[in-house]
Design a protein around this nucleic acid. Sequence first.
DNA 1: CGCCCTATCTTGACAGTGAGCAGTTTACGG
DNA 2: CCGTAAACTGCTCACTGTCAAGATAGGGCG
Lengths: 208, 208
Amino acid sequence: MTTEGPRAGDRYHHGNLRAALLDSALEVLSESGVAGFSMREAARRAGVSQSAPKHHFGDARGLLGALATRAYRQLCERLEAVDVVGRDVGERVAALAAEYVAFARDNRPLFDLMWRMTQFDFNDPDLVEQKHRALRALDRGLRGQDAQRPDSANPALVPSYAVWSLVHGYTSLALEGAIDEDASDPLASDLLPAMLRLLDVTPADRDR
Amino acid sequence: MTTEGPRAGDRYHHGNLRAALLDSALEVLSESGVAGFSMREAARRAGVSQSAPKHHFGDARGLLGALATRAYRQLCERLEAVDVVGRDVGERVAALAAEYVAFARDNRPLFDLMWRMTQFDFNDPDLVEQKHRALRALDRGLRGQDAQRPDSANPALVPSYAVWSLVHGYTSLALEGAIDEDASDPLASDLLPAMLRLLDVTPADRDR
DNA sequence: CGCCCTATCTTGACAGTGAGCAGTTTACGG
DNA sequence: CCGTAAACTGCTCACTGTCAAGATAGGGCG
């Protein structure tokens, strides 16, 4: 096996071309956005031929899908890394929302891609799982640390969905320029916390 | 002048190619989505050569931009047509939200396109104006009929932005399948009204 | 009437793309 | 040491957006 290192060199077998392609693809995506993305360009930057990605990802959708899945995983890790203990609901939600927005701002084209995969008829189970995981992370902030796996039929999820929708909608609209509260950096303003304060997110159970 | 009718026939000059192109472009967009959109195909369906659109729209972004602007105008008209008198804040917001979601469901690829134009570096002033108009329609539902033009610096707009973000976020997430409360038709469920009820949208002024 | 001028549309070409296929090279297990 | 499968190349094909140059129609002006 040659998976010991990313020492691509000029060997016929790249070694870990899959990872290298993901990296170069992210590079292309970050520069050109989803619309200007090109699989050939990604392969070019990885130093391989245009049809090398086919073996690993099938087609362009597969590559973008893998990229999106990795992005979801990173988002989840950032959300789960938010310190949640010893703070009340409002603080926890605000912290998670800030992290969500920060991720979107730091990875704008990637963030766009993440919410467009179903449009590409891409329903990878791994990707769906990461989506649920993101919701779980938000839900954990709402319900405390001992939140069990959210059940879709559970009406207690309504606040979680509300927070998610609010934060996601604000992020999308702000990135699109529809909300221009602070033209310099709309995502850094305190509009989002103000909006979250309007939400009655106090859960019915034993919180606080 | 031959602008008297859409009788395209087989004349060299179409007559009102611009409108015909917008229609065929909408058709293509509705069938293939934003990713699969093709300007050539749109021209083909309008019965015109591949580069005829250039004169009217410049490039592909111009065509999609015109399409998006028209869509914003339609959304605004639908929102403004929502009956707002003689109902309390909750009812008004719920009605506007339902209309917003209905528009998204009825014009899914178009709705996607609308919020992607800035990604395409398309900042047409007319389009931006229609965006503001949509916010004004929502704000009118919140503050009553005599709402003046919203001012970005006005803190009273926070509830409007909150409602907009919540509704827009919910719509996006539901269309993407991230919210699977009702797998059959997530947009028709009563999750959104439940979430809106969590929002304290009672304005500070003389409402109710 | 005759001429030109401008807006409009066509034709033809170019570079770039995603995708499929046949072949070539390498790595690895037996 | 060899056979087999994985990994990668090179080619072709249909398609795309964009551009430059030519064709066409209709209105204005002599």
